[in-house]
């Protein structure tokens, strides 16, 4: 039986899709049969980040409406065995995603997969709600920035009151904090919230810290999830995060600024991150 994991945040543009792609790829690389679902109806983008945009034939809504079956609809990753993508529909009808429809599709996939990763759209409206409703665990993607932290807290409120597990009084959704776009040098300068500040406020366990990284844009340009850029800081940080999700004890990396030379320090040269 598959575990369902939602990648969520409230705020847009914080790195949910980047994370969903990397995380799902990482699970598949570890040998788990994984499917990653784009819940962003009308704003399909996961396909681009996964590099399968030209192979989309059917989508999530077709599957719900039984206009296609699983086999026809899931896109199999070209390079990685065990990895599948379910693209979002480009319809403008946001109501096309129904609780019953989503449940039916998830139940079918649950039998075949080890992990189902749900890439949530931004906001706290229907789409985001649908993406988290059936989740067993949640990865709350947060940037070190006030509006992102506040929105993450709102999402935590929704996870603990409006999810299926909450409504049916089952065990809580397991919550994980993932801090992305972290820039240690700015934290040192006092311009950016530190990991501990964010943890103090949100009060959920930290599963990883992804640094602000040039590798992310390069990865999206190429349509290859950044986790496959094995030598990049972001790629390594995502690999570590996957390991922690699987219960391994891996120390955090890229959380302190690289030592800067005396002259740089003296003149406080701005290091432009990313």
């Amino acid at each position: 039986m598959a575990k369902i994991i939602v990648v969520t945040s409230g705020k847009g543009g914080v790195g949910k899709t980047t994370t969903s792609a990397a995380f799902a790829t990482g699970l598949a690389l570890r040998g788990f049969k994984t499917v990653v679902i784009d819940f962003d109806v009308g704003l399909r983008n996961l396909d681009l980040i996964m590099g399968c945009e030209r192979r989309v034939v059917y989508d999530f809504i077709n599957l719900i409406n039984e206009e296609s079956n699983l086999k026809q609809t899931l896109i199999r990753d070209k390079n990685i065995e065990n990895l599948y993508i379910l693209p979002a529909s480009q319809t403008r009808d946001k109501d096309a995603l129904t609780t019953e429809g989503v449940e039916k599709v998830l139940n079918k996939m649950k039998e075949e997969f080890d992990y189902i990763v749900c890439d949530s759209p931004a906001g706290i409206e229907k789409g985001a709600h649908m993406a988290l409703y059936f989740a067993d665990s949640a990865i709350v993607v947060t940037n070190p920035e006030v509006s992102s932290v506040r929105d993450s807290d709102r999402i935590l409120g929704i996870l603990s009151s409006k999810s299926k597990r909450a409504e049916e009084g089952e065990d809580r959704i397991t919550e994980h904090l993932l801090i992305t776009r972290y820039a240690p040098s700015r934290v040192d300068r006092g311009d950016m919230l530190a990991i501990k500040d964010i943890q103090d406020i949100l009060g959920i366990p930290l599963i990883g810290v992804i640094p602000e990284s040039q590798a992310v844009l390069k990865a999206s340009n190429a349509g290859v999830p950044v986790i496959r850029d094995e030598n990049s800081d972001a790629g390594i940080a995502y690999t570590d995060m996957v390991a922690r999700f699987l219960g391994e004890d891996v120390p955090m990396r890229f959380t302190t600024a690289e030592k800067r030379g005396f002259f740089k320090r003296l003149f406080n040269k701005e290091e432009v991150p990313a």
Partner: peptide, 19 residues
């Protein structure tokens, strides 16, 4: 005062209120 600590204080207040 560094802006990160201002951010933290503001967040603690608003998050407590909203919770």
């Amino acid at each position: 005062k560094n802006t990160a600590s201002i951010a933290k204080e503001r967040l603690q207040i608003i998050v407590a209120h909203e919770r």
